[in-house]
């Protein structure tokens, strides 16, 4: 029997009402509980059916053609142009020989890099680096990505973002470190994305954070805030 509190969470999750951190916590429960998974699936189906209460509308025929044209264009871009057969029988052999030489060079380079890595292993901070993958949630686009490489020894890290449009005027994206020793998330600064929706920034939290369990990005007032106010766009643990 699933406890009522967990059933509440399942219903809210099915309707997409949980905050990102709550949803992440619930998903970890889902992965360990088959009965809860079944119930959540059924509740999700029930939630989806609520759409049927919207007054019925039929889209214009032109919309279908518009969409199919775009799909056709995308499909054409995906297609790989096949190589044409030409009477140049030596070309494949030349390519194979070049590849063999190239592979040999790569093998030598790999051995050299392995030696360098072994030499650095004892001292390099990279060995202490923890990686966090941050999951997007609305209003961040579903295909937006953010990853954090965190070096606790240096109390600094690097965040890399892609596919995140610039915020509306008067707003900024702000990075937060969630540390178990601190009541509130610790600000790690403002993140500005370029025109392509990307960013790669080194950051340092404003307070010492020795027990970071997650990072999050929120949408805040321009210039940032001391304590999180706006909606969470990304959150993720290591």
């Amino acid at each position: 029997m699933i406890p009522e509190e967990q059933q509440d969470q399942a219903a809210l999750y099915a309707l997409g009402l949980l905050e990102p951190d709550e949803a992440a916590a619930f998903e970890s429960q889902l992965s360990a509980n088959a009965e809860l998974r079944d119930m959540t699936r059924e509740l999700r189906e029930a939630a989806g059916s609520v759409a049927f209460t919207a007054p019925l509308r039929t889209p214009p025929a032109s919309l279908k053609e518009r969409i199919m044209r775009e799909i056709a264009n995308e499909a054409a871009e995906r297609k790989v142009v096949p190589l044409q057969r030409r009477p140049l029988g030596w070309v494949p052999w030349a390519i194979a020989a070049a590849l063999a030489i190239f592979c040999g060079l790569l093998a030598v380079d790999r051995i050299r890099l392995k030696r360098q890595l072994a030499a650095l292993r004892g001292v390099d901070q990279l060995m202490q680096t923890t990686f966090f993958t941050l999951a997007p949630s609305a209003p961040a686009p579903a295909d937006a990505k953010a990853t954090v490489a965190w070096e606790p020894g240096n109390q600094s890290g690097v965040i890399r973002i892609s596919n995140l449009p610039a915020p509306q005027p008067g707003k900024d994206y702000q990075l937060w470190a969630v540390d178990t020793e601190h009541k509130d998330p610790i600000s790690a600064g403002i993140i500005r994305v370029d025109k392509n929706g990307g960013a790669q920034v080194r950051f340092k939290p404003v307070e010492n954070a020795q027990h970071v369990k997650a990072f999050a990005i929120s949408l805040e007032r321009e210039g940032g805030v001391q304590k999180k106010e706006g909606p969470i766009l990304f959150v993720g643990s290591s």
């Binding site: 009522e4 059933q7 509440d8 399942a10 219903a11 809210l12 099915a14 309707l15 009402l17 059924e42 509740l43 189906e45 029930a46 939630a47 059916s49 609520v50």
Partner: peptide
């Protein structure tokens, strides 16, 4: 509110 949403969705599921 949580209880109302849960009970409503469960009823919807059962009756469907």
């Amino acid at each position: 509110v949580k209880a109302r949403i849960r009970r409503g969705l469960l009823k919807l599921r059962e009756r469907m």
